[in-house]
Design a protein around this nucleic acid. Structure first.
Lengths: 159, 159
DNA sequence: CTCGTTTCGACAACCTTGTTGTCCATGACA
DNA sequence: TGTCATGGACAACAAGGTTGTCGAAACGAG
């Protein structure tokens, strides 16, 4: 019974959403409400060296204005902080706060737990195979997490 | 090398986006630009019996106002048409036009071609296994395609 | 040293896809 | 007939993104 291509797309989306929805819920349960993937993604980029809004925008493939808005939210929640750069007065150096790191750590743990759960359902070897195959198909293309409503914009067809 | 849970989520998202982006591009190439997944989804629901805005909203788990906006777009493009219901003057009966059906048909074909491509890369049996496993993990939960920016809102963590 | 160019950050206006709230016309029913 | 439910339209607003503009600071060439 060969499934249709549209079904396959739906399966992938469904898998992703299952994971993500569960993770979001668990994070909220642990006291980190309002944590969004974009936030996590941004914090990782900041940790990795994107210490100003313009650079963060570039790394996330988003306009610097959008990056600035994300930063504003993160800052408001206390996940990142900014101070002026003594060497370049135009910049405000960004860094992730201990609280921000805690969110990152917990988020990772939650996702790993979910993966373990799937592993118990499918078996370690099976899940590993599935991952390998997906990796083959997806390739090394970086995944962008931006673009609000992209699901509605890009999801081209038949899904 | 056990991958992390976050990577798994990213793989799923990546797979989905690969498919969808390719399909959108191909559809555009065939002359159907600006076709969005939501449109396809909505047309299917209309075909399946959601012949008015309120009902469509319910089926798509979206407010009737949002459904009405989608309908307005579809109508403008000529994919659906509306006429008054002779038995209930409050209603405007919806139906998909031949052009709309053509879009649906082509969209399906595009997705199937993409699936075939993956099948050639992985082998029929392997892809079937992958699909079966995903289906197991995802369960029968219907996938909602709504919520603008849900990716940014729900993607909870670590992804 | 000064002038032009580039870069950062902020502000404003606008788009898109949702959401609620409100309202009227119509239909269903007691 | 009077009351209540429903469909559709309109308005106001939210979230996330975009582009355009602009001032301040830095850099580099004369």
């Amino acid at each position: 019974m060969s499934r249709s291509g549209a079904d396959l797309a739906l399966l992938l989306l469904g898998g992703f959403r299952s994971l993500v929805d569960a993770a979001t819920a668990e994070l909220a349960r642990r006291g980190y409400e309002d944590v969004r993937p974009v936030h996590d993604f941004a914090m990782r980029a900041i940790t990795a060296g994107a210490d100003n809004a313009s650079e963060l925008g570039r790394r996330l493939s988003v306009s610097k204005q959008a990056a600035a808005k994300t930063i504003a939210v993160l800052q408001e929640r206390g996940y990142v902080a900014r101070d002026t750069d003594p060497r370049d007065a135009r910049r405000k150096r960004l860094h992730v706060t201990p609280l921000g790191f805690e969110v990152l750590r917990q988020g990772e743990a939650v996702f790993d737990e979910l993966r373990d759960q799937w592993e118990r359902q499918l078996g370690a070897a099976e899940l590993a195979t599935l991952e390998t195959h997906l990796a083959t198909l997806v390739g090394a293309r970086p995944v962008r997490l931006d673009a609000p409503g992209w699901i509605a914009q890009d999801l081209g067809e038949s899904v």
